[in-house]
Amino acid sequence: MGPPGAVPAEGGQDCADLSVLVRCAAGYCDGQASAMIRYVLGRFLSLVLSLVVASIVIFAVIEVIPGDPASFMLGVNARADTLAALRAEMGLDQPLPVRYFAWVTGLLTGDFGNSWTYKTPVAELVSDRIWVSLPLAIYALILSTLIAFPAGIYAASRRGSAGDVTIMGATQLGVAIPNFWFAMILVLIFAINLRWFSAGGFPGWDNPMQALKALTLPAIALALPQAAILARVMRSSLLDMLGEDFIRTVRAKGLSRRQALWRHAVRNALIPVLTIIGLQFSFLLAGGIIIEQVFFLPGLGRLIFQSISARDLIVVESVVMLLVFTVIVVNFLVDLAYAAVDPRLRRKA
């Protein structure tokens, strides 16, 4: 994309060159590889497009809807010179498109602007805290998968048995438990009564074991309700697969029920499960913001809530964009994982 106001002829030239380049690159590919490249490129294009639209939406909500964001941030009693300083800081004298591009260019180069309340670069604030929030989400995702897969597979393979009924009953409860309340109960039991864990706070990553330990209760609180959902999806997806014609075919080849399940049904059942895992990541990331409140973790959640109450829109804007960015990128990765699992996406019919 050229800078705004570039001469049209020049922009057109750029586009032509680019398309020739891509066309040449594609010329070396045979049909099958090209289908794969087309798929990946298509998903990538959709990723970029989603990011662009998402950034426009966030920008519009934060900087356009309030009218004058600076006076919104400072409130009605703001002094004129403070207001002017903030307006200059935010570049409010510039037209909207210019401000938008400046913001996006800043994001791309790692410049998230300066927090008005903390008087420090947002990038610094974020980089301190993201190392709490992101590991928490990933920790919870791993836990959720580790619990859900065996539970779902076990329940599906012994459909109708006491084990299946127990697991399904447990997932029914797991789906209904609010994770922040579950977190409070965990604190009550494991931190206050048993004193196995501390009730909150985060010691930093200098001592990784201590850090992991501090994240364990929050991760469990986050993971269990999601694991319940995932186990249900895994079970029903597997049962669908076990009803497919090709399972009967492999049984006719002499595979036992167990072999048919593990060698054929599980991999096929992963396709719908992957979608849920992708969606869950965004819930874990967002849910983490709430769980951080329970455990007094210095993550993005705290930063966001402090910024909201301080009306520090600059921080809110960038942190929200970062969250949405992460979610969109994870969904892109899930799409790529599809291609690894499902050959129908890799090659054309």
Partner: peptide
């Protein structure tokens, strides 16, 4: 779907 309801709530 990339905006969990919590994020929408934060924005609003």
């Amino acid at each position: 779907f990339a905006f969990p309801s919590l994020v929408i709530a934060i924005l609003i």
